[in-house]
Design a protein around this nucleic acid. Structure first.
Length: 227
DNA sequence: AACACGGGCAACCGCGTGTAC
DNA sequence: CGTACACGCGGTTGCCCGTGT
């Protein structure tokens, strides 16, 4: 069927925002609030599509944004949340007031991934890389494709909702529940042993943001729910 | 000094979801 | 109930800038 573009792009400006445009958008939103993003550019006198305005506001102009680099503690929390939620950046970002999903996603892709690899942790599964290889060996009778992440798992239950790490978790669980438990425990430990590695203190050593019990509870919301 | 390269980040694109009609 | 629309999300792209050669 196809979907109409969010706006006709003819005559609309793209690319980096100018200070002038920023001011127009800020002033308009502060004066009028946000009711319909589609109307914002028209009413604010901007040659941008509503989507672009929304993105600019959320990721850059919002007054409550916390600028500056993420702390190591925040990084560790991101790692733990990623182990739990996978690539659901908005969900992860909701735990960091003043941070945007885009910012966290970028930070993950550019820094944390590399850091985890250096530490020998698979950034997708959050398992130590050697252990992952062992599991692969142990289950060599299982067709390899069933172990791989399948982004286009069309027939997979809840396809399109679960992201890669969660899909993979589910696939693994289906052939070996014990692996899953080990994996889950491993995921939860990652943040902690990274802290040890880097000699930093972390409040989660004493008060983790979620418990193993929570993670094992299938009724627990986000990761298993479909909206 | 000039160039190549890689990292970081802002912005765009396309799809999924919710909802009004 | 089906359709169209607006919004939100995640993946990807492209530009800018710092660093290495």
């Amino acid at each position: 069927m196809g979907r109409q573009p969010c706006c006709d792009k003819v005559g609309l400006k793209r690319g980096p925002w100018t200070i002038e445009e920023d001011h127009k958008l800020i002033n308009f939103i502060l004066d009028n609030g946000i009711h319909c993003w589609r109307m914002v550019p028209k009413l604010a006198g901007l040659l941008r599509c509503g989507k672009s305005c929304r993105l600019r506001w959320i990721n850059y102009l919002r007054p409550d944004l916390k600028r500056g680099a993420l702390s190591e503690m925040e990084e560790n929390q991101i790692i733990q949340l990623h182990a739990r939620f996978g690539n659901r950046w908005s969900k992860i970002a909701s735990h960091f007031p003043g941070r945007t999903d885009n910012e966290i996603k970028n930070h993950w892709n550019t820094r944390i991934k590399r850091r985890l690899k250096l530490l020998g942790v698979d950034p997708v599964t959050h398992k130590p890389i050697e252990e992952k290889e062992k599991v692969a060996e142990k289950t060599e009778t299982v067709p390899e494709e069933s172990l791989e992440v399948t982004p286009k798992a069309d027939n997979h239950e809840q396809s399109g909702v679960l992201e890669t790490s969660e899909r993979q978790n589910e696939v693994e669980m289906s052939y070996d529940e014990r692996n899953d438990y080990e994996m889950l425990s491993g995921s939860l430990d990652v943040g902690l042993w990274i802290n040890q590695e880097t000699n930093t203190s972390n409040s989660y050593n004493s008060t983790p943001p979620f418990s193993l019990e929570d993670s094992l509870n299938p009724s627990m919301g986000e990761s298993s729910s479909v909206q």
